[in-house]
């Protein structure tokens, strides 16, 4: 299995298309960094409109942590496309290339083959997220410095102390990884049925776009089913940027407001991963390889 995973990872990172994602992320992150560097105040004014009249904001709002928050918020909607680009190609791409039949005739069980392919695609998403961490978080910290983080929600503003942010990012990145692997598993599942990767990529993105739109639309009909969409849980990483409060309403640094909810979301995502990968294995084991 380990050997197979290594082979699959090797193949992924030898494929030119793999690097599209890394370049795309670099481009998006650089653009956000540049925009915030040049014109960050305007963005802040927008976020804090309604507050600016009453309050004076002290400290360095546009700091590395804030920039990374914006980057994550923006990127984590689009990175699924980049994840699908590889995960949806894992089986369909091989079928398209004609190598799937060769793989399946090797003395490895289809389950092992598929699991190692899935794990390899997860390694890719981990690499992708590490890349985001390096240029989105660490580079931003280097360029913009650090200070407390302003988390602007729709009806409240959360202020996090400078020394209370970094660990939250570690948790958020771990959670985001889970969310991206969920997308990966969906793409992977679609990949089983197709003989070229375009279909599964488009299918994966369509599911995510439709679900995200439905989750964002505040229509009562969807409000009730929203909890069943995995996309609703994908933004659970934001839960790490809220604090618990005392009875007097004081926020407590170093706490997470609703950890059980975040963990439940993580559980939902994990269940999706298990389901999609499990279903992939079941389908693939019975599948006639005709490509």
């Amino acid at each position: 299995m380990w050997k197979l995973i290594k082979i699959e990872v090797f193949k992924i990172f030898k494929k030119p298309r793999t690097y599209i994602a890394f370049i795309a992320i670099w481009a998006i992150v650089s653009l956000i960094q540049l925009a915030l560097y040049v014109d960050g105040q305007k963005y802040i004014d927008f976020v804090l409109s309604g507050v600016n009249d009453t309050f004076k904001v002290g400290g360095k709002i546009i700091n590395g942590y804030f920039v990374c928050f914006i980057i994550l918020q923006t990127l984590l909607i689009h990175v699924p496309l980049l994840v699908a680009l590889v995960s949806a190609d894992m089986v369909a791409g091989e079928a398209n290339m004609g190598t799937l039949r060769l793989l399946v005739t090797k003395p490895q069980s289809r389950t092992t083959l598929l699991l190692s392919k899935f794990i390899a695609s997860s390694v890719y998403t981990i690499a992708l997220l590490l890349w985001i961490a390096v240029i989105g978080l660490f580079l931003s910290m280097f360029i913009f410095g650090t200070d407390g983080l302003i988390n602007a929600k729709s009806d409240q503003i959360i202020l996090l102390n400078a020394n209370d942010v970094f660990w939250r990012y570690l948790c958020a990145f771990a959670f985001a990884e889970l969310a991206l692997i969920t997308v990966g598993s969906l793409g992977f599942f679609f990949s089983i049925f197709a003989e070229n990767s375009l279909g599964p990529i488009v299918a994966t993105m369509s599911v995510i776009i439709v679900f995200t739109i439905l989750s964002t639309l505040e229509i009562p009909l969807f409000e009730s089913v929203k909890q069943y969409f995995f996309t609703t849980h994908m933004i659970g990483w934001k839960g790490f940027f809220e604090m618990k409060q005392t009875a007097e309403g004081d926020s407590i640094p170093g706490t997470i407001r609703n950890l059980p909810a975040v963990l439940r979301s993580a559980g939902v995502l994990l269940a999706h991963i298990v389901f999609f990968v499990g279903a992939s294995i079941v389908v693939f084991k019975r599948k006639d390889v005709l490509s």
Binding site: D53, K56, V57, G59, K60, D147, L149, L159, N161, A162
Partner: peptide
């Protein structure tokens, strides 16, 4: 170590 929101002025 952090940002502050102070009432204007």
């Amino acid at each position: 170590g952090g940002l502050s929101l102070l009432p204007k002025g």
